[in-house]
Structures are given as C-alpha cells and as structure tokens.
Write a protein that binds this DNA or RNA. Structure first.
Lengths: 249, 249
DNA sequence: CGAGCGATTGATTTCTTTCAATATCGGTGG
DNA sequence: CCACCGATATTGAAAGAAATCAATCGCTCG
C-alpha cells in the first residue's frame, strides 16, 4: 500500500507560462479540442500545474473536498474505491489526455482515490473557475458534458466485458489499452503496461494467478509476446478477439 | 425479444398542463429539486409528455439520433447494449424519478437501447431546449452535471459488486433496489420486481438458473420470501449483507 | 387445448480460485 | 561486487463456484 506522500504535501502550484495547451502532446484527446482558438487561450490561461506525482503518490483521497479537475499530461494513474471491509477496488486506469475527478463534481467529498502508477504530470483546473468559465466559454460546458457522458458509456461497455470469461476480459482489457495508446499516437502493438499484474487482476475481478496463466496461454498461442510489463501484440491478437467485443465509441 | 412498437409510432407529444413538477410524486428525486420556485416553473413549462409506453415498447434504440432527456414518472425501464455478436447486455434498470438518456449527450446517435419493463409514463425535455435553458437557469446546469457525475460514481460501485461472488452480487442487487424504492417513499421490505429473472441474471452477469438457486438459498435461510416477482425482505437480510458493500451515495 | 415462455431444480462439466512452492527483478547494505 | 531481501510474477495441484445440459412445472395467450 502506498502512502509515501499525500497531496497536501505538494502545494507549490505554479502558473507555467510555457506549458500552454497549444504545445501539449495530448491536446487532441483532452478537454480543449473543440474550443475555438480565442476560447482556448482564455481557457489555458487558467490552468495550473503542480510538481509531478511520483509512483504511489495520491492525487486525492476519498473524503477530500474536491477542488479541481485534472488532465493528465504524461504518466498514468489508477482510481479506486475502498469498501467497508477495507478491500481496494480499482475503478479505472487513466492515460495522458484523460480527465480525472469527474466523479466528484457536485459532491462535497471525493468518492474515490487517485494514485500515480508512475511519474505523472498534470494540468489542474479549479472547479470554481470552471463555474465562472461556463458563461464566457459556452463550448466548454458542452465539451465537458460530452466527455462525462462518454465516460458513462465507457463504464457501461466495461460492465459488459465483466460478464465474459476471464480470457475474454483480459483480452478486452489489453485491446482497450492498445486502442487508447494508439489514439494518443503511440504504437498499437508495442507498449509498456503502467500497472502490475495485481492491479490488472483487481480491476478485472480476477486473481493475479489467473492473469499470469492467461498471459501464458496467449503467449503459447502466439498471440503476443510479454516480458514483465513490456507487451507486443501480434496481429493475430487484434482480429479474432476484437470482433467479440463492442467497438470503442 | 420485444418489437411490438417503436418510438416513432408514438409521436403525439402533448403539453400536459395539469402535470407540472409541483404535483409529481417523484419530484424530490428528479432533476428539479434544487431549483428555486421561479426557475422550476420556467423549467416545467418546457416539459412535454407522451402517451405511456407499454411493456416492451422502446423509448429509443441504439443509432437513433438523440433528441431528448427523459425523466420517469412511473413504471420502469431497462437500458441495454447489443454487441457485435448480437448478445444483449443490460446496463441498468431505471425507476421513477430517474433520468434516462444521459449517455447520449453530445453524441449524434444513441449508444444504447431503452425499453419499458411495464407501463411507463415519462417527462421529456428536448436537448435543444436544454441548451437554451442553461443561460436563464444556471442551477439547472449544475444539477445536471451533479446527476450525471453521480451516475458515473454509481457505475463504479456497480463495477465493484461485479467482482464479488454471485451470492453477494444478487444480494447487493436486491438491497440496491430496496434502497431505491425506499428513497421514493415505497416500502423497503415489500416490493414487486419489475424485471424477469433472466433480466436480473443478464444484468449481474449470471445465468437465470443461478439466480433461481440463490433466491432459493436465501429463502431457506429465512432471509426473504419471494413468489414470482413479489419480494418481502426480512430484517435479517438487510444487516448482514449490506455491511459487506459500499454504502449508497 | 396446446404452444411457448419463464421459473425451478438436478446432475455434470468447466472454469476460476485457493493454497503452495518457486522464480525473478530491483534495490540495499555489508 | 555480491549476497540478501521484499515485492512481483509464474507455475502446479486441489478445491470450489457457477455454467451448462436437461427435465419438469406453471402460467398466459392465442
């Protein structure tokens, strides 16, 4: 369990004038893509940055008062819940260009935890400022609604995956990751898993032993190479399994 | 499979001047509760009603252009996806006071299906009018974001349930229903399931045989009485299992 | 009345977990 | 530099849970 550093310990927020959205590597997958240029500048001026999170650092914890939305510039995070008997349940893995903290909108306490899986840098948008932005930036509101609505649908698709066999679930998981890397301009076939086998297992509702065994099975079938966290999917892998699942939105 | 009547066949939309939000039985659980009175009237004036759906009627289908949000006045609906191999996956059951169509916001096609489980009457709010309402009714926007954000969190909790044993999942499902009925002023202990065993099984990722067997097991343990769709939960049922799961938000 | 769907129950099979042992990697300190 | 440690990963054998296959019952609707 990670408790090396809590979010309160990283307060040096700084305006980072060089880091505008315009030169962000993942701007096309983030909040601003549909904003016209003038609105974009207005929007970007209100973003703040913080010192990057290190592996295991928490961005927020359940119970914290939510103050901001976060967009991931680089790195990866996991979000999770802890239930009454203390069991941790991972609810999602988050890659560059994705928004974090949506589930806390309108609440006075964060319902979930968010922890960095590797060194992670973020953009931060204060929820208060977001309110003031709705008026001058009408497109932003629509975009936000669109993104959160899309997340809702993504959850539904996930739910769907969960009702399949372990083999299908893990394959679907890898293909989903692959797709998300591809959309960010990275390789669809070769990537490095940001999370441990245990995290994968937890997320998919399996045991880490089962995950190991299934990966071995895929390997035997020649579907992929995997060594530690480095994955190379063969083209064989894409087609037969992808068609079994819902296409991505 | 139900195809008795498609939504295009029910176009007689009517302003129903008698049916304002003020006298709606589920107004406290719907969109308006946080609106001040004057905004509420303005809001309610824009709602339209349609002839109630009959069991099996579709409110919308995947691929339809989304034009409205719907609030359930009475009855019950299920929403579901159909994947590439034609398998239906239920993503949710929806009770009076809940909003339907949130996952289509910002999309040009509905990503899911919605079908009535019993006779169901609805309020309808055009998405176009929703856009125009953001300006004069700022509280409405916040409320909508809040609701959709809450749905997102509810999905996460559900995900969590899915990683438990079949026994826990079904128990959690019944308790969730019980809780939702209670919040609407109905009995927490006695209610009628609006859906079939197959629907429950589909939703929970089980088989209907397993659902039957588990219900029989609960019955043997004296946790509940169930005959057909009529359920009576004993107080024994609430406590031991509820504490195993996340509290509702 | 008969057909068909939904529900229940039983027997068997399949899949996943659990328990247990071993292997590997990265880092730490002697 | 190397031995050791803990955390992470892999692999095997046995136990357990849920699915599948199959049969029956009751109900509704044509």
């Amino acid at each position: 369990m990670w408790h090396s550093s809590i979010s309160q310990a990283i307060p040096p927020l700084t305006q980072a004038p060089a880091n505008r959205c315009g030169d962000c590597l993942v701007r096309h997958r983030c909040l601003p893509p549909s904003l016209p240029t003038d609105e974009l500048h207005q929007f970007a001026a209100l973003l703040t940055h913080r010192r990057p999170l290190q592996r295991g650092d928490h961005l927020y914890r359940a119970g914290d008062p939510p103050h901001s939305l976060f967009a991931i510039r680089s790195g990866a995070l996991k979000t999770y819940l802890i239930d009454d008997d203390g069991h941790e349940q991972i609810t999602g893995f988050h890659l560059p260009g994705e928004l974090i903290g949506l589930d806390a909108i309108g609440l006075d306490r964060h319902p979930s935890f968010a922890a960095a899986l590797e060194t992670t840098s973020l953009c931060q948008l204060s929820l208060v400022q977001l309110e003031t932005l709705h008026e001058p930036l009408p497109n932003l509101r629509s975009e936000l609604l669109r993104i959160i609505s899309r997340s809702l649908h993504a959850e539904h698709r996930l739910l769907h995956l969960n009702h399949r066999s372990a083999e299908d679930r893990l394959a679907g998981f890898l293909l989903d990751l692959s797709e998300r890397f591809a959309r960010r301009g990275l390789s669809r076939h070769c990537f490095v898993l940001p999370m441990s086998r245990c995290d994968i297992a937890n997320y998919l509702g399996l045991t880490s032993e089962t995950v190991s065994r299934l990966l071995a099975r895929y390997r035997q079938r020649g579907w992929l190479h995997i060594e530690g966290r480095e994955v190379r999917l063969n083209t064989d892998f894409d087609l037969p399994v992808l068609t079994e699942h819902c296409p991505l939105p």
